[in-house]
Design a protein around this nucleic acid. Sequence first.
DNA 1: ACATGTGAACTGCTTCACAGCG
DNA 2: CGCTGTGAAGCAGTTCACATGT
Lengths: 220, 220
Amino acid sequence: MKRIADSTVRRLSVYLRFLEDSVNRGVRTISSEELARRGGTTSAQVRKDLSFFGSFGKRGLGYPAVELTAALRDILGLDREWRVLIIGAGKIGTALAQYHGFRQRGFHVVAVYDADPLKVGTEWEEHTVRDISRLESDLASEHPDIAVLTVPGDEAQRVAERLVGAGVRAILNFAPVQLHLPAQVTVRNVNMAMELEGLSYALTNRERETNGSNGVDGAA
Amino acid sequence: MKRIADSTVRRLSVYLRFLEDSVNRGVRTISSEELARRGGTTSAQVRKDLSFFGSFGKRGLGYPAVELTAALRDILGLDREWRVLIIGAGKIGTALAQYHGFRQRGFHVVAVYDADPLKVGTEWEEHTVRDISRLESDLASEHPDIAVLTVPGDEAQRVAERLVGAGVRAILNFAPVQLHLPAQVTVRNVNMAMELEGLSYALTNRERETNGSNGVDGAA
DNA sequence: ACATGTGAACTGCTTCACAGCG
DNA sequence: CGCTGTGAAGCAGTTCACATGT
C-alpha cells in the first residue's frame, strides 16, 4: 500500500464522525457530496481519499453508511483498544485524563504520571497519579501504545526519550517544542499558542489589507 | 503582500519561541541552520519562510536574534493585546482559561461563558462564568477579537454563528465538527480525537507492514 | 440518469543550487 | 570564505473531467 498523506487521514476522521452520526439517525446511504459538505471539502476529494483504500460506493447511489463506517474504523485501527499514558498532571493533562470521549473511541488511559511530589498520589476518577521516576519499571506491565505528553517544554525532549526507550511508539505532544526522536516513532503536535498566533496573524493581516472597511455583516 | 501558507505561519511561531529562549540566554546571532534544527525543518525552508517578509539576516553571519525576534512578533501581530473569549466552561475550557502562558503571549481572556446553570456564577482565579444567553448584550462592551470554542459538537455551529453575528472574527474551535462560516472569519481547528486517530492509523499501518500478512487480527 | 472511481492537469509548497554580499 | 536570499526545479496534494458501472 502506498503512503497516505496526513491530510487524508485527518479527513477520514472527520468523515467517520459524521458517518457515525448518520448511522445513528438511520441513514442508509451517503453521497460523496454530502460527506464533503459536512467535512468542509469537495466531493472529488472525498472520493479520492476513499479510493486509496478500496471501492466502497455504488455508482449512481452513493456509499452504504454502515459498511463505510466499519471500513473507516478498520482503516484507522479503531477496532482495538489502545493503551494510553498521560504524562504530566497539569491542567491539560487533568482535562484529558478525565475526558470520557477518549475511552468511547477506544483510547483507554492506563496511567497518569507527574514529577511533582505534591501531585503524586492524588486521585482522580479512577487514576492515582504516579511518580514519573517509576515510569520505566511500570512499563513492562502497562504495555502502553501511545503517550500524551503535557509536561513543560524544557522537560519534553528528555521525557520523550525515556518513553521511546521504554517502548512507546506514538506520542501526542502538547509541549511547545519540536521533539527529535527516531523516525519509527510517530509524533503529532498540538500547540495552543501556535494556533492562537495563527489567528493573530490572520487578524493582523486582514486589518492591514482591508484597512478601514469595518463591514460587520451579520448572521448567515 | 502575497498570500502566506498556513504551514509557513506555523513555523514562524516555532522559530519565535526558540528565538525568545535564545535571546534570554544571551545569544546574539542565529543561523538558518540552527533555527532549522530546533524547528524540525531545513535551513532552506527557514530562509524561504523569512524571505516572504523581508531580509533580516547578514550574509556570512546569520540572523541577529533580538531584531529577528522583534520582526516575528510584529509579523504575527503579537505586539498588541488580543481580547479572547472562552465559550464552554468544561474541562478543556477551564484548563485554557487558567493557563497563564496565554496572557504572557498577549492573549487576554476577557470572559468565560457557559450554558449550564450549575456552572454559571462559579468563580475561577479572576473570572466569573457568565450565562451564554448574555453573550450578545455583553459583546458591545467586551470587544473580543478571538473566541475559543469548547462546547459540545452539536452546539458548536449555532454558537459560532452567534459569535460571528456579534463581531468575532477568529475562532479556535475545539468541537469535533467542521464549522461553516463566512469566509472572512478565520477558523483553526484543534481536535484531540482526530490527532489520536492519526496515531492509531500510523501504529496500525506500521503493524500491518511489519507483520507482512493479510487477515488483520483482533486486538491483542 | 446518476454518482463513483481515477488518470491527467493543475496548484502550490518544498527543496535545490548558486549568485550575491558581508 | 560563510551564510543569506531567491529563481528554478521537483514533488505532493488537490481539482478536473469523464469513462465506468448500476
